[in-house]
Amino acid sequence: MLIVRPAAPTDLDAVLELARQIGPGMTTLKADRGALERRLEIASASFAGTAAPIECDYLFVMEDCATGRVGGVCAIKRSVGLDEPFYSYRLGTMIHSSAEANVFAQMQALYLSYDMTGCAELCSLYLHPDYRQGLNGKLLSKSRFLFIAQFPELFSERIFAEMRGYQDIDGSSPFWESLGRHFFKMDFQAADDMCGRDKAFISQLMPRHPLYTALLSEEARAAIGKTHVDTVPARRLLEQEGLRYEGYLDIFDGGPVLQAKVGDLRASRESMRVVAEAGTALAGVDALVSTTSMRDFRVIAARAAPEGGRLVLPPEQLDALRCAPGEEVVTMPVQPARAAGIRKQENSATFS
């Protein structure tokens, strides 16, 4: 059985090993032992409610209960851009027209934006290849939404996720080669590594004026808003939860930034509190089940058939959740109601 739980300082070696397996493009999970050690300390303080809001970083790991192995990691940063600028590009339109020349042209342009300042960020999602099967990826990614739905007061109105942008088979980024390289005078990997340590160089080197996309290479234009092949499944899961691409891009690789209002997230609308009971689970739908404690937040995937405000779970699942019969849990179908052919009954804690 797999469980998603808050990361602890004792997870340092396991998280570091996962970070070492990630290729270029994920600046929020670098294989830097010192930085990860500090991050795990902040995560512990965040879940304990003792970290300053500006530095809260809710880092989760997915643990294999049978072996104790950590097979995945994901995170929610409470707010970005408050201690150092957070940049993105906004894709917009400029109009060039001349009645005398009989020309009317719409030109796409990239505008440097700080619009995500103060928003919460979904980040650092990585699942080890050994665990990429069944519901594991959904459990890891979507567990964060149950956390947000239970503790919405921790977050601003809007939440977003930067998707890793398109890269060629050799790991190079067409978007970076056509744009960023001209201003930063370094390889994509070098810029990506620097961004993971200190973002001050971005404000010093980044062009601040609108950039016409027509001046980029054809390959770079094709990469705008395009997701890395390894990140396509993660994007699909986020879109199921209500996040959408609205024309914002990562400034380095041109990957899409997905966003949503917290109140519009599926977990905010479809999750429900029920009382846990021990027993033989009835036939139900694939669902996520979580505890209600922030300090000891835990999530599993289970077959769930809540009825009358109660949910029957096998003893081993209750043990994994560290939940006693009679305590409240929160549950939500893994698949959106429309996709799974189910709907939530009004005024009744039942999946049907």
Rank of each mutant, 00 (worst) to 15 (best):
I42R: 10
A191L: 13
Y58E: 13
L140F: 08
L258I: 09
R338I: 15
T67C: 05
A120V: 03
Q21P: 12
E84D: 13
G81S: 04
Q106Y: 08
Q189V: 12
E316H: 10
H96Q: 07
Y131F: 07
L12K: 07
I300H: 11
P210G: 09
H128K: 12
R144E: 10
M163L: 15
Q106S: 14
A109V: 15
R244W: 02
S203M: 06
N136K: 09
G326I: 06
Y58Q: 14
E327D: 13
V103L: 14
R322I: 02
L12S: 07
T227V: 11
L135V: 09
R5K: 14
F175A: 00
I342R: 00
A190R: 03
C65M: 10
E241T: 02
V285K: 05
R5D: 06
E157M: 14
G255H: 01
T331A: 09
R298K: 14
S141Y: 04
I54F: 06
T93K: 10
N136S: 12
L12R: 08
A304D: 04
P333G: 03
G180K: 02
F104Y: 11
M332G: 03
P85I: 00
E37R: 14
M272R: 08
A14H: 13
S113T: 04
K138F: 05
A234L: 10
D286V: 02
K142S: 06
A149H: 08
I3T: 14
V103Q: 09
R38A: 13
W176S: 04
D192F: 05
G279E: 04
E63H: 02
A349K: 04
M206K: 05
A99Q: 11
L82E: 15
G255D: 00
A222V: 01
F252A: 01
A8H: 10
E17R: 15
A349S: 06
T28W: 03
K199Y: 08
T292Q: 12
F188Q: 02
L215H: 14
L139G: 03
E162P: 13
G49Q: 09
S156V: 05
D64S: 05
E307M: 06
G68E: 08
A190Q: 12
D319P: 07
L321D: 10
S178N: 07
I42V: 11
G308P: 08
D32G: 14
L154K: 12
F297P: 13
L110T: 01
L40W: 09
Q189D: 10
A120Q: 12
D192K: 05
F160Y: 15
E307H: 06
R235E: 09
F155Q: 13
Q106H: 12
M272N: 04
E328W: 14
